[in-house]
Nucleic acid binder design. Structure first.
Lengths: 223, 223
DNA sequence: GTCTATATGGGGATAGAC
DNA sequence: GTCTATCCCCATATAGAC
C-alpha cells in the first residue's frame, strides 16, 4: 500500500521553489560571498533541484540579481521616504544632519519588518555586495545606488552649506565604507572587540554612527 | 646555430621565481580577491611553472600567507613606530588625536618606499584582505592586527579621557571600516563620485580622514 | 515544474623526469 | 629548482525524461 500523497512530479505550489531558492541564496551569499556560495550548496540546502536554478533564473548571475533587487529595492525606497519625511518636518529650513543620517542609516541597519535572523542575513548581504570584487556586481550596485547617493548628498549639502562639495563627497564615501564594514562581518567585529561591538544591536549602532558621523560632517572644510 | 643561452632547465638566480610569484600573486589577489585569483592565472602571468607554487609555498594558502606577511609586517611596524614617535614628542601629556590618527592612517595610505603602481596594488590588497569572507583569512588578519589595535586604542584613550571605552572601540571600528573601503576599490570610488574622490591621492585622503575622524572621535560619549 | 544525468571547463595538488 | 603530465574534485550550464 502506498501512503504517500505526493509522488513523482507533482506540481508544487506556485513560486515555492523560487522563494526557497531566493531565501537560501541570500543567506549563503551573505555568509560566504557571491563566488563563495555554489549553486550546488544553495540548491541542496533549499531542498530543490539543481536544474531549478536554470529554470527560474537562467544563470547564477540571474539568481544573484534577483536576490539583490528583492533586498535593495525596498531598502532604497525606505531611505528615500524617510528622507522626504525629514525634509517635510523641517519645513522651510534644512533638516538637521542627524535626521538625514538617520534616514540613510536606519533602513540599512534595521531592514523593514524583518525577523531577527532574517535581518542579520540581509545586513550581511548588503555588506558583501558592497565589498564584492566582481566588477559586474559593482556596476550593478553603483547604478542602483546612484539615486540614493545624489538625494542624500543634496540633503546634506543643504544642512551643511559651509562644507565644500568635495569634502562632502569624501565624507559620505567614508561613511558608506564604515557602514558596509559594520554590515559585512558582524561576527568578526564582535570577536575583534572582545564583544564590545555588537552590530546586531541596531539602536546602539545607529546611535554610535550618528554621533560619530554628524560630528565628523560638521568638521571644518579641508579644501 | 643556436643562439639561446638559457635553454632547458637552467637554474634561475636564487629566489627569482619566488619573488615573481609573490609580486604577481599580490597584484591578482588585490584585483580579484583571494578566491578570485587562480594559481594557474598567477603562475601564467608570472611566467613560472604551476608546480613552483607547490615547491615554494606548498599550497595556495601558503602563498597567500606569505604575501600577507610581506606586506602587513612592515606596515604594522611603521604604524607602531610612528605612534611611538608621536608619544615621545608629546612628552608628559597625551598626543593629539590628529597625531595618533596620522600614525595609524599614513602608513596604510602611503606604504613605505613603494613606487606608485606598487603602492596602489598594496593598498588594494589590504582592503581585500580586510573584507575577505574566508574565516581563516579573517582569523589571520585579526591576530596580526591585535597588537596595532590595542596600541592605538590605548593611545586614543589617553588623548580622549572623556570618551567611554565602548564608544572609543566603536568609533575605531567605524574608522577601520572606512579605511578598508577606501583601500579596497579605488576605481569604483572615483567612478561613483564622478572623479571627485581619488584614493590614490594620499595627501588628500589623509587630510580628509583626519579632519573627519578626529572631529567624530571628539563627539560626546553616547553611552 | 521538477528531476536525473551529463557536458564542459576550471580549480588545487602532486608525482616524477630532468 | 624547474618542468610536464595527470589525478581528482567541483563548478556552472544544459538536455531530455517524467
Amino acid at each position: 500500500m502506498d501512503t504517500s500523497i505526493f509522488k513523482g512530479s507533482v506540481t508544487e505550489p506556485e513560486g515555492l521553489t523560487k522563494a526557497r531558492l531566493l531565501d537560501v541564496a541570500e543567506r549563503l551569499f551573505a555568509d560566504h560571498g557571491i563566488d563563495g556560495a555554489s549553486l550546488r550548496q544553495i540548491t541542496k540546502e533549499a531542498g530543490v533541484n539543481l536544474g531549478a536554478v536554470n529554470y527560474h533564473f537562467r544563470t547564477k548571475e540571474g539568481l544573484m540579481v534577483t536576490v539583490f533587487n528583492r533586498r535593495f529595492g525596498p531598502l532604497k525606497q525606505e531611505q528615500l521616504n524617510l528622507l522626504k519625511q525629514a525634509e517635510q518636518q523641517a519645513g522651510e529650513g534644512a533638516s538637521t544632519v542627524e535626521k538625514v543620517l538617520e534616514a540613510l542609516l536606519m533602513p540599512a541597519l534595521r531592514l523593514a519588518k524583518a525577523a531577527d535572523t532574517e535581518r542579520q542575513i540581509a545586513m550581511k548581504l548588503i555588506g558583501r555586495i558592497v565589498t564584492e570584487p566582481n566588477p559586474r556586481i559593482q556596476d550593478l550596485l553603483c547604478s542602483q545606488q546612484a539615486e540614493v547617493r545624489t538625494a542624500f548628498t543634496d540633503a546634506l549639502r543643504r544642512s551643511l552649506p559651509q562644507l565644500s562639495s568635495a569634502d562632502l563627497t569624501w565624507r559620505l564615501e567614508l561613511l558608506w565604507g564604515a557602514l558596509a564594514f559594520v554590515l559585512c562581518n558582524p561576527g568578526g567585529m564582535e570577536r575583534a572587540t572582545g564583544g564590545v561591538c555588537n552590530p546586531a544591536d541596531t539602536q546602539a549602532v545607529l546611535a554610535q554612527m550618528i554621533a560619530f558621523f554628524s560630528a565628523g560632517l560638521r568638521a571644518p572644510s579641508v579644501t
